[in-house]
C-alpha cells in the first residue's frame, strides 16, 4: 500500500538534514549530512538517497527550515518555509508534550525555547558569538588532537574538571594551553571545556530565562554526552536527549507541513525528484543601481531562472517572477 508521506529539510550551517514522516508523524527515514559549504549539493544527495522511498509512496508536502531555508525552499518548491525556532519547538512538543525547555545547540547557532502549557512562550538565540556552539567544540577538539566523536566519552571519565574561560574561543585556547602546561590530564581539560560551553550558553542565551524540567536537549551537539552531563550538573536536573535529536529541525518542518496540508488539503508544489540530477547554479552579484549595494542572488535550474532575492527594493525578485512567467 502506498504510504502518505511528508518531507522535512533542515539546511543548517554545518549539516543538512532530511526527515521523512508518515501521516502519524512517525519518522520513517532520516539523514544527517554535512553541508560542507554547499547545501544545494547536500540536499541533492539527500534527495537521491530518499528517492526510492519517495517514488514508491505519495509525497504530500515539503517543509524547509534552517538558515538556508529561503534558498533551498525555492529550489525544492517547498510548501512551507519556517524559521528554526518554530520548527524545533514543534518537534520538541511532538516528541514530549510535557516539555518546558528546549535546548538546541547546532553548528553555529544555539537556541533556547521556553514552552509552557504546550505553546512556545519565549525564546533566545545566540548573537554574534559562536563560543556556545558546536563550532567551538570542533575547534577545541582539533587543538587537543582528539576526534569530536570521542569528546563526550573522554569528558565523562573526568573526576575533577578544570575551569576554563569559555567567554570567548580565543581566550579559551590560551587558557586551555596553560592548563595543559600545568599538567592537568586530558579528560579534565575536555570536561572543563564542556562546562565552559554550558556556562557560556546559560549566561548568554539563557540569561534571565526560567529553565525548568522537562528539558529536551537537541541539535548535533546533543550527541556529546559530556555536554549533556555538564548541563545536568549546572541545572541540577536530568536533561533528555530525544531519539531523533540530530534531525529535530527537519522533523519539525515535516510536522509543520503535515499540519498545514491537513488543514488546507492543497497539492504539493515540490519540483520533484528530477532535482537530484538537475544542474543548479547560483548567480550572485552586487547591484549598483543605487547606493544600497544589495547582494543579489538568483538561482538557475537548468535554463530556468527561478528566483532572485537579497534586494531591498524588490526589483530582482520581481524580474525573476517575470522571467518565469
Amino acid at each position: 500500500m502506498k504510504k502518505r508521506l511528508y518531507l522535512g529539510v533542515d539546511v543548517g550551517s554545518v549539516s543538512t538534514n532530511l526527515v521523512v514522516i508518515n501521516e502519524q508523524g512517525d519518522v520513517l527515514e532520516k539523514l544527517y549530512l554535512r553541508s560542507e559549504g554547499n547545501p544545494i549539493k547536500s540536499v541533492q544527495k539527500g534527495l537521491a538517497h530518499l528517492g526510492e522511498t519517495i517514488a514508491k509512496h505519495t509525497l504530500l508536502g515539503v517543509g524547509v527550515t534552517g538558515s538556508g531555508r529561503q534558498l533551498i525552499g525555492r529550489i525544492l518548491g517547498a510548501d512551507l518555509v519556517k524559521n528554526e525556532i518554530t520548527a524545533h519547538g514543534m518537534a520538541g512538543l511532538f516528541t514530549d508534550p510535557t516539555v518546558k525547555t528546549i535546548i538546541e545547540i547546532g553548528g553555529q547557532d544555539s537556541k533556547l525555547i521556553l514552552v509552557r502549557q504546550g505553546t512556545v512562550v519565549d525564546f533566545a538565540m545566540n548573537t554574534v558569538c559562536a563560543a556556545g556552539t558546536g563550532s567551538f567544540l570542533d575547534q577545541q577538539a582539533g587543538r587537543l588532537n582528539i576526534s569530536i566523536g570521542d569528546f563526550g566519552a573522554i569528558a565523562l571519565r573526568s573526576k575533577y574538571p578544570v575551569r576554563i574561560a569559555g567567554r570567548c574561543s580565543v581566550f579559551a585556547e590560551s587558557d586551555m594551553i596553560h592548563k595543559q602546561q600545568m599538567g592537568y590530564p586530558l579528560e579534565d581539560i575536555v570536561a572543563g571545556l564542556c562546562e565552559a560551553l554550558v556556562r557560556n550558553y546559560l549566561n548568554n542565551v539563557g540569561k534571565g530565562k526560567e529553565i525548568l524540567p522537562t528539558a529536551l536537549f537537541q541539535g548535533g551537539v546533543a550527541a556529546n554526552a559530556g555536554i549533556k552531563a555538564a548541563f545536568e550538573k549546572e541545572l541540577g536536573f536530568a536533561v533528555k536527549v530525544p531519539e531523533h535529536f540530530e534531525v529535530m529541525g527537519a522533523l519539525g518542518a515535516a510536522l509543520l507541513v503535515r499540519e498545514s496540508k491537513m488543514e488546507n488539503g492543497e497539492e504539493t508544489s515540490f519540483r520533484g525528484l528530477r532535482l537530484c540530477e538537475a544542474e543548479i547554479a547560483i548567480d550572485s552579484f552586487t547591484c549598483s543601481d543605487c547606493p544600497n549595494h544589495c547582494e543579489v542572488v538568483t538561482v538557475l535550474i537548468g535554463q530556468e531562472r527561478i528566483s532572485g532575492w537579497g534586494d531591498r527594493c524588490g526589483k530582482w525578485q520581481h524580474l525573476a517572477k517575470e522571467a518565469t512567467g
Partner: peptide, 28 residues
Amino acid sequence: EAGLLTRIEAFLDLINTHAHRREGIGCG
C-alpha cells in the same frame, strides 16, 4: 538579515499561537 528575520518570524508565530489560544481555537 537572516538572524533578524528568524527572530521576527519565530516571534510572530509565537504571538499567533497566543492569540489563537485566547480565542479558544487551540493550536500546537
